[in-house]
Design a protein around this nucleic acid. Sequence first.
DNA 1: CTTACGGCCTGGGTGC
DNA 2: TGCACCCAGGCCGTAA
Length: 290
Amino acid sequence: MPELPEVETVVRGLRASLPGRTILDVRLGKTDFIDDPAALGEHLPGARIAGVTRIGKFISIELESRAADGPRQIPTLMIHLGMTGRLRTCDPNDPIAPHTHSFFGLDDGQELRYTDIRRFGRILLVPASGMSEFQGQLGPEPLEISREDFCGKFHSREARIKAMLLDQRVIRGVGNIYADESLFRARIHPARIARSLTRAQLIALHSALREVLTAAIRLRGSSVSNYVDSNGKKGEFQQRHRVYQREGKPCTRCKTPIRRIIVAGRSSHFCPKCQAAPRNSGKRKAARQR
DNA sequence: CTTACGGCCTGGGTGC
DNA sequence: TGCACCCAGGCCGTAA
């Protein structure tokens, strides 16, 4: 699943070919994952790609009108890959992969294609006037937030730490893989209530998150469920996973079998020995059953 | 207000 | 060979 490191890898790949290109035409297949399909055909043809950046898990393709068109506001093309989305440029004559639903013809003869098996992704246009609201719905970038601000986000919250890491309004870009991996490295159980964590633990989590994300970007992301970057290349960070999808396998630190439980409605992988369970989790469970 | 939880979208993989 | 079932991430409605 594309999370921050995978999206960053895709963005870096696209940055090599897209900026400066002009979009000539738009062809759409299924459109149920596009906020306003008609708007794409309205705004994109003739627009030049000014830059490609990442905003959390979104790929942001900034557009500008060509000089001949005169000044005209062009919205930003925002693409979220969901679980199975792929975005890549290719030759228009290349065979069309199954579940390819959007085609953007470019002025260098290449074609930008969006493929998404499950269509959990999303494509939308954000006008310049809506960018601050769009950004405002997301928390800070985990690689940019300071240690102090990070601790401040969690120290008074009653929610589970895993749920908060996944909440894009708290921190943007983190998904299930990097939440589990950073919690393991910080030795924090995913079901711990954020408020109950010590300052030292929050600092450790901040560092672990930075280290995991940085290492994953360096290895071009994690390839699970067929993720590939904009060049069709697989990432390598999945080989460094210590808990994610390693249920039953020995902890790399203490050999205890890794466990999987559901926290915040998500599979959560952890070492029951290295990541101590919340103090009264047993009592709570018993009370609920009664 | 905050948090928890279930359901929904879709289709590949699994197991019978 | 078919087919029921599980699961994934984000989002939304509802309940406490």
